[in-house]
């Protein structure tokens, strides 16, 4: 799978409006992954992933912060969501700008993880799951 195909699959799963939005989703989720995945593990993914995706993972640290949790992971993704962050409190759901960004961020993680999983061998998936924060690893498994 090349980078364009990767984006197309993510866009299709997430119903994202544009390629730019899709690229932003992919970049933010993978940059969050780079925060928890040690550099050595990232190097092991080079053969499986399109080089354009590896760019987002290059920020990985030698020793990731052991206290990086699911909230921090979400923070990287929520920043890219174009919404005010609040729940829609109108009676008929008329507030077009409202969105519960946490749920939307988790949905975006699901979309990227689903396509990412299809590129990784089972042992690589297990290795990734081992480094993801608890809740995030659940999203990866469920994706």
């Amino acid at each position: 799978m090349n980078y364009r195909e990767f984006l197309e699959q993510v866009q299709s799963r997430g119903c994202f409006a544009t390629a730019d939005e899709t690229q932003s989703v992919v970049a933010n989720v993978l940059r969050a992954v780079a925060e928890v995945l040690p550099q050595g593990q990232v190097d092991g993914l080079t053969a499986q992933l399109p080089p354009e995706l590896m760019v987002y993972l290059r920020g990985a640290h030698q020793e990731p912060d052991p206290f990086f949790d699911s909230q921090l992971f979400l923070g990287w993704v929520v920043s890219s969501i174009d919404a005010t962050g609040a729940r829609d409190r109108t009676e008929e759901g008329l507030d077009l700008y409202a969105a519960y960004s946490g749920e939307e961020a988790i949905r975006r993680c699901h979309c990227v993880f689903a396509v990412l999983k299809s590129l990784l061998e089972p042992r690589q998936q297990d290795a990734l799951i081992a480094y993801l924060p608890d809740e995030v690893s659940d999203w990866f498994v469920q994706a």
């Binding site: 909230q71 921090l72 929520v78 946490g102 749920e103 961020a105």
Partner: peptide
């Protein structure tokens, strides 16, 4: 706090 808010990390760091 909003999901992903940096305050979660501050709360955690203070407890640690």
């Amino acid at each position: 706090w909003c999901a992903g808010c940096g305050d979660f990390a501050i709360l955690k760091a203070l407890k640690l």
